[in-house]
Amino acid sequence: MKVHLIAAGKFHDIDFARLELLKLLAERPQIRTSVAADYGDLASLAAADLLITYTCDLMPDGLQQVAALEAFLARGGRWLALHGTNATLRFGADGVVDTPDEVPAFTRMLGTRFAGHPPIAPFKVFVTRGDHEITQGLRDFRVEDELYLTHRTAEIDVLLHTSFTGRCDEFRDADWDEAEVPVLYERKVGEGRVLYLTLGHCRGHYDLQPVSAFWPHPQRCAWNYPVFHELLRRAIGWGLPHAA
């Protein structure tokens, strides 16, 4: 079974996330994984059963790469999108972060577009649908992570959610009052499916350059929680149902 992992981007400890995901994939000996740092390896994507992306501020480069993702989903491929996959970050002259929709065909496939997050803090995650293979048997849980706030770009089926009322002062889209903030959702695209899990922030000492030369406190957030690893294991199984 072939998995294509894209792990790259800004302001996160991508090396840590890549290694943790590869360790989880290695638990299934029938999986063979290709690894890339952008969306340019079209041959590996075309051969894959499952695409996994852990990125931030990394978009497909041009129509050919967008079309390859569309073709992957159209033929029945499954895409596990993690954390900042849907994020575009542009720093304004005033230091506030804009999150423009620069590749709308991409965010339309994903079903959401990142818009901001409050400071990292504990929050409660609720099981929205307990009858799905990813959430069956799970209970509501608390986690300390970035609470991702998004705008929906297409129809999605929310499986886990949280809520948020307040401000995200670092982001242009600052004021929020949301009773249902998607944390995990599924979306059907063609014959394929997207599974998006917003948890999983991680950052080391040197990952905020050039914004900050040194980050004093490394962050692992949801990676410290067994429930997050359980969700990832289930998501890998979801991506390869015939390998379960």
Score class of each variant (00 low, 15 high):
Ala8Asn: 05
Gly9Thr: 11
His12Arg: 14
Asp15Ile: 02
Arg18Cys: 03
Leu19Met: 06
Lys23Asn: 13
Ala26Cys: 01
Glu27Cys: 03
Pro29Arg: 11
Ile31Leu: 12
Thr33Arg: 00
Asp41Gln: 11
Ser44Ala: 15
Asp49Leu: 01
Asp49His: 14
Asp57Gly: 02
Asp57Gln: 01
Met59Ala: 13
Met59Pro: 00
Asp61Ser: 15
Leu63His: 07
Leu63Glu: 15
Glu70Asn: 04
Ala71Val: 04
Ala71Leu: 07
Ala71Trp: 00
Arg75Pro: 11
Trp79His: 12
Gly84Lys: 12
Gly84Pro: 05
Gly95Thr: 06
Pro100Gly: 05
Gly111Ile: 04
Phe114Lys: 02
Gly116Asn: 03
His117Met: 04
Ile120Pro: 04
Ile120Thr: 13
Arg129Ala: 12
Glu133Arg: 15
Ile134Thr: 12
Thr135Arg: 12
Gln136His: 15
Gly137Val: 12
Leu138His: 11
Leu138Met: 15
Arg139Ile: 00
Arg142Cys: 08
Val143Ala: 10
Glu146Met: 08
Leu147Gln: 14
Tyr148Ser: 03
Leu149Asp: 01
Arg152Lys: 15
Ala154Pro: 01
Glu155Asp: 11
Leu160Asn: 04
His161Lys: 02
Arg167Glu: 15
Arg167Pro: 00
Glu170Thr: 04
Phe171Pro: 04
Phe171Tyr: 15
Arg172His: 13
Ala174Met: 08
Asp175Phe: 12
Asp177Tyr: 04
Ala179Asp: 08
Val183Gln: 04
Tyr185Phe: 15
Val194Gln: 10
Thr198Glu: 01
Gly200Gln: 08
Arg203Val: 12
Gln209Glu: 13
Val211Trp: 06
Val211Ser: 08
Pro218Val: 06
Gln219Lys: 12
Arg220Thr: 09
Phe228Tyr: 15
Ala235Gln: 04
Trp238Ile: 09
Gly239Tyr: 01
